[in-house]
């Protein structure tokens, strides 16, 4: 037996190396919900580093932008630059305040519209691969984040939580190939299911061929399944292929959320409205 094992060592190793991943894959062990302890260890060790790197990169980008602005002004006039610079700084501060004001007003409206129970979170890392679209955020079970909670921005739906560690979570975005959201076309109330496509934005499946769908139509969440708030924007229709046969039409969606620039998001902790105060 031992002799056989020694002789066939290489073949056994090759078979093992191929079979192990196949076993993982075919058993469908990605129950994306459950996280093994060793996975938690990896996340525990890397998430803080990712957070630091992301903050540093963002800081460096902002500093670089600032430097470019200053350099540009310098070239125009050395003397005038100081004045312009200080004025610009003031203006920038004012603009920043104005933008912040607008943003806060928007967020307040958004919060009132969607759910009063929302927690802000920062995106600390994107998906390591180029084919899948998940993001890591800096809120976890310690902040009462749970699996399947919706993640949104004022622009629209980002996705839902699929993994949670104590301080970090993974969000499956609407453009990931594994994502499925029940949606309706706002104008005609035509129903469909939005799923992500690797290498593209997303597609709205199961939309009946007879339904009226036009480019530019806004697609919103239907609220079914109780994960996403009803009526939130998901995207707009930008390509329709309607064949003369078949029962459904091909509708491609462009998400309203800019996933490449995603920095801050909101986790919807509960979809229930605030209890109404009883009038005496």
């Amino acid at each position: 037996m031992l002799k056989f094992l020694k002789e066939k060592r290489l073949i056994i190793i090759v078979v093992f190396l191929i079979l192990l991943p196949l076993l993982f894959l075919s058993s469908g062990s990605k129950s994306r919900h459950e996280m093994a302890w060793y996975e938690r260890v990896v996340y525990f060790l890397t998430n803080p580093i990712q957070k630091v790197i992301t903050n540093s990169v963002e800081g460096a980008f902002h500093a670089f932008d600032y430097y470019i602005n200053i350099l540009d002004t310098k070239q125009k006039n050395q003397t005038l630059e100081k004045k312009v610079s200080s004025l610009l700084q003031e203006l920038s501060q004012l603009r920043e305040t104005q933008l912040e004001n607008e943003r806060l007003r928007l967020l307040l409206n958004f919060k009132q519209r969607v759910s009063p129970f929302m927690v802000p979170a920062q995106v600390i890392a994107k998906d390591i691969s180029n084919e899948f679209e998940t993001v890591q955020i800096n809120k976890g079970s310690e902040d009462n984040v749970k699996i399947n909670m919706a993640v949104v921005t004022p622009q629209g739906i980002v996705g839902r939580i699929i993994k949670v560690t104590s301080h970090y979570s993974t969000v499956l975005t609407v453009i990931d190939p594994a994502s499925r959201i029940d949606a309706v076309i706002q104008r005609t109330r035509a129903r469909g299911v939005i799923s992500g496509i690797a290498g593209a934005h997303g597609v709205m499946e199961y939309v009946r061929r007879t339904e009226d769908v036009q480019e530019g139509d806004v697609v919103i969440s239907s609220g079914l399944a109780g994960i996403y708030p009803k009526g939130l924007q998901i995207g707009t229709v930008y390509k329709i292929i309607k064949k003369p046969y078949g029962i459904s039409q091909y509708v491609e969606i462009k998400p309203t959320v800019s996933f490449s620039k995603l920095e801050e998001v909101f986790i919807v902790m509960s979809l229930e409205p605030l209890p109404q105060k009883k009038e005496n």
Partner: peptide, 11 residues
């Protein structure tokens, strides 16, 4: 670190 099914990149 990816949203892929487990075993996808291993294979």
């Amino acid at each position: 670190f990816s949203g892929s099914p487990q075993g996808f990149y291993m294979l």
